[in-house]
Computed example of a mutant assay.
Amino acid sequence: MTVVVTAIFKPAPGRKDELVEAMRPGIAAVHEEPGCELYAIHDAEDGTITMLEKWSSQADLDAHAKGPAVALLNKDIDGLLAEPVLVTTMSPIPAGTDLQGAL
């Protein structure tokens, strides 16, 4: 079963653009990881950067969390956050159509 994750990054004051640029190499590295179906950042209206992730399995997500791409991302964003990243892991509850009812 797939696993969906949100990760909310609160930039330090005046550092949002720098944070986004610093995230790019790590995101590209994650896209190469087994099981990564979606790993995309979004500019949220509250000033945060929100990552939406979709993984083929919990095992793939677990490997990702311990892997070199996350280490790179964490290194690159060091000093650019106002607070720790808020990560939420979810299991889809399909509803409606197959195409639109689950991420």
Rank of each mutant, 00 (worst) to 15 (best):
W55R: 10
E18N: 01
R24L: 14
L72R: 15
H42G: 13
A44V: 06
Y39I: 03
P13G: 04
G14N: 09
E53I: 04
V85E: 00
P13Y: 03
P68M: 05
A22R: 01
E83V: 09
V4A: 08
A82C: 09
G79P: 07
G101L: 07
P13L: 01
L103G: 07
A65S: 15
V85L: 05
I93P: 05
D17T: 11
M1Y: 05
A95V: 12
V30A: 15
H64R: 06
S57I: 07
S56R: 15
M90P: 01
P92S: 07
E33F: 10
M23S: 01
H42L: 03
G79T: 10
S56Q: 14
C36M: 11
V3E: 06
A65I: 12
I8M: 08
D76A: 14
L72W: 00
P25T: 10
A7Q: 12
D78R: 02
E32T: 10
A69I: 02
T6Q: 04
K16P: 06
L72F: 01
V3W: 03
I27G: 00
A7V: 14
M90Y: 13
G101R: 09
Y39K: 11
R24P: 00
G101V: 08
T88H: 06
A102F: 05
T88D: 03
W55T: 07
T89H: 14
L73C: 06
L52N: 00
L38W: 05
T97R: 12
T50L: 14
A59K: 08
L72K: 13
A29D: 11
E32K: 15
L38S: 04
F9E: 01
H64K: 04
A12H: 03
A65L: 13
K16D: 06
V5C: 03
T89P: 06
L61C: 08
L86F: 04
Q58Y: 01
A63C: 03
A82W: 12
T88N: 11
D98H: 13
H42A: 11
V30N: 00
V5R: 05
T2S: 08
L99Q: 04
M51V: 01
V70P: 04
